[in-house]
Nucleic acid binder design. Structure first.
Lengths: 288, 288
DNA sequence: CGTCAAATGTTAGTTTTCTGTCATTGGGAG
DNA sequence: CTCCCAATGACAGAAAACTAACATTTGACG
């Protein structure tokens, strides 16, 4: 497969896929499952039958056909024809790339995907909504994280700072916490901690200290965290166990993205103006 | 998953194929045609049906079935089942949790999941393997990244340093590149760049400079990157477009994880010992 | 709380694919 | 030339995939 994104002669199948991508949001629940299955398994879909897809997606067979129809494809039959046609034209199998994936990598990938979807599933939990509220309403936000997630914490601080004012990365070690000599801002203060196994001792201390000073605390962590729930209700646990050499960051990353997004969309902020201002600033500094 | 990811689980289908290859010579004329068609078109066979194969091979439909039977496969039906089993894995599990999501999140999530699976699909591409090789074989590795991915680059450097020796984060701005005053290490030097839109001007410059000094370059970037392909063959493009407030980091994060994992598993490293040493060091410093 | 429309599933029918039975072919041994 | 047996195909029946029509459920809205 060539470099992927650039250019495909627009076969009807590609056209169809993009229609599905766009239309996904407007889909009813069950059909959305089917669409998701299609998009995630495009390269192995040719091995499937309508029925088998239905089973794996957990819907009735006919729903598969209906979904296809909705996007202007006359059922499984025509869909397969499109696939075949695309193959005969480009001469390359959609399956080629991932076909050779050893099965343990497949498992690995499935685990990662599951981790991400687990995080998304938490959007409506009280914990997530508490986190959203703290981050949205506080006058100032501190972000911190150590060891293998320090970078993630820094990025999160940077990105969050685009979404709302007064965000600072807090480096306990280096600044000796001079930031907290003064009492929290009047409008409320919030600390966002990212911590994973092996938990940095500082995190818990920092969190408790924050609470004592009257700050809200949000914790993004892995599934084993022992201390966070005692300190705050805004704890987001994400799966991190993997077969890889190190723990996975995907779940954590997804969680931060969602929180940032939620904060950006919080009421009373004009994001467009904010982004414009930011771009103007960035231009002047000439970093691009 | 243990350290070796060389374990291509021997699926029944592979077994079947090798039996066919061996038995080819002893086959009657018509069946030989069929067998040949199978072997030559293994990757498009999923689009075919017993009938269509028969037509293209110029034999009767039943002969196809007979040929399969001869090699211990109970007909087209079982053959397809074997193929399906071999190739389709992902998705069943995701369907359940995601059911309750509001549909706009659903779309968002699917996009993210697809980004990750796209990255995994690239494991076997030449570009990925080149990256793997550079990172595994170089005597020293520098990692860099700016703006919203600087943190990711730093984390990557830290994690990569657990997998192999002599990894440093390179901060062009701050160190004024003093690291590169001296010529590259004798065993080879490698620069890993993470860069996304809006591309930092420094990245391209840095990459070209590295090449001039005889260093290998690996680039992890988004789908729009314009400069990387001119500089090196080890470019990993990951989808980053999302409906969120900012671009997605998931694809990039997945890519770094895979590269780190691959490096850790590169031949000639005793990862267990390395991890033990590291834990001992960490204990003494008392960071946990 | 009821109504209505969209969504989804169920059942049954149609088409396609697959396979079992039997007839035909074709080449080699006597 | 005839007989024999493997090879092959034709046909029909079985099974599966697919679809259409109807029934049930769900959820929004008044």
């Amino acid at each position: 497969m060539s470099h992927g994104f650039a250019s495909y002669a627009e076969a009807p199948i590609d056209d169809f896929v993009s229609r599905v991508e766009e239309g996904m949001a407007a889909l009813p629940k069950q059909e959305a499952k089917v669409a998701q299955y299609f998009l995630l398994n495009l390269n192995s879909i040719s091995f499937e039958t309508g029925k088998s897809i239905a089973q794996k997606a957990g819907v009735a067979e006919i729903t598969v056909g209906r979904m296809l129809r909705r996007f202007g494809c006359a059922g499984m039959k025509e869909f397969k024809a499109m696939m075949r046609h695309r193959y005969s034209v480009t001469g390359e199998s959609l399956a080629d790339d991932s076909a050779e994936l050893p099965s343990d990598w497949q498992e690995q990938m499935t685990a990662e995907l599951r981790a991400v979807s687990t995080v998304y599933a938490k959007i409506n939990t009280p914990a997530f909504q508490a986190a959203e509220r703290y981050l949205g309403e506080a006058e100032e936000v501190y972000v911190t994280g150590f060891q293998t997630v320090r970078g993630l914490a820094e990025d999160t601080a940077r990105r969050l700072a685009l979404a709302r004012p007064r965000v600072r990365f807090l480096s306990g070690h280096d600044s000796m916490l001079s930031e907290w000599l003064d009492p929290p801002a009047a409008g409320g203060s919030c600390l966002l901690i990212i911590d994973v196994i092996p938990y940095a001792a500082e995190c818990e201390t920092l969190a408790r200290m924050a609470r004592e000073q009257g700050r809200d605390v949000v914790v993004i962590t892995d599934e084993y965290c022992h201390w966070a729930h005692e300190v705050t209700d805004a704890v987001i646990n994400t799966p991190s166990k993997t077969g890889l050499f190190l723990e996975s960051l995907l779940g954590l990353t997804a969680a931060t993205s969602l929180l940032i997004h939620a904060t950006a969309n919080a009421t009373g902020r004009d994001m467009d103006a904010r982004m414009r201002d930011w771009k103007r600033l960035a231009q002047r500094i000439g970093i691009f």
